[in-house]
């Protein structure tokens, strides 16, 4: 009895499979549905045929772009960078003298404002390096404030690993890229 019902079950399943496959075979060569996929494509709908983004306001670059050589002696101020150890943002002892010279320049030119750029080497990931570059610029800023320069004459900007001075992939190049750079903004 048990064997029999199992046999019937198998038969039923078998016929079902045959039925299903038979059904689908009829469809071969025919089409079940017609579909028009969405055509939406970024960049093709930009206003005025221009594929550029509409950024808010002006880029404000005029006020804060460094003006090289705007003040006497500014070139010397801007030419000397300070450097950092790998994945570190502490000021090296040998760079304290350079920062003291920069403080001296800023004291002699009370209207001058300075912008400090923080940079990293290409090792490491770019998100983390943007933060690390910020810490390096801030470390230089803090040291200048410690030397008596008013906080509101100083700004920082981190470029992370985006602006290397040397694109070679060796320790010498990386050491050059782990830097803080100083610009005079004029007034």
């Amino acid at each position: 009895m048990r064997n029999m019902s199992r046999g019937i079950c198998l038969l039923a399943l078998l016929s079902l499979v045959l039925f299903a496959s038979g059904c689908s075979k009829k469809n071969v060569g025919q089409v079940d549905e017609e579909v028009t996929p969405p055509q939406q494509e970024l960049g093709t709908r930009a206003p005025g045929g221009d594929m550029g983004m509409e950024m808010p306001g002006s880029d404000g670059g005029v006020q804060s772009t460094p003006q090289a050589g705007a003040l006497a002696g500014a070139a010397a101020f801007e030419d000397r960078d300070i450097y950092f150890d790998y994945d570190k943002f502490s000021i090296r002892p040998e760079d304290r003298k350079i920062l003291a010279e920069k403080a001296g320049y800023l004291n002699a030119n009370p209207n001058a404002k300075a912008r400090i750029e923080g940079h990293c080497d290409e090792r490491g990931t770019s998100e983390y390096n943007l933060a690390l570059g910020e810490r390096r610029a801030k470390a230089a800023l803090d040291y200048l404030v410690f030397l008596g320069i008013s906080r509101d004459r100083l700004t920082t900007i981190s470029y992370g690993e985006e602006k290397p001075v040397d694109v070679a992939q060796n320790e010498e190049a990386w050491a050059k890229n782990r830097r803080a750079h100083f610009d005079i903004l004029g007034d």
Partner: peptide, 17 residues
């Protein structure tokens, strides 16, 4: 495994997409 036609469809799109 089932001899079934799973998909049998006409898609119509612009040539460049």
């Amino acid at each position: 495994s089932t001899s079934r036609v799973l998909i049998n469809t006409v898609y119509t799109t612009k040539a460049d997409t």
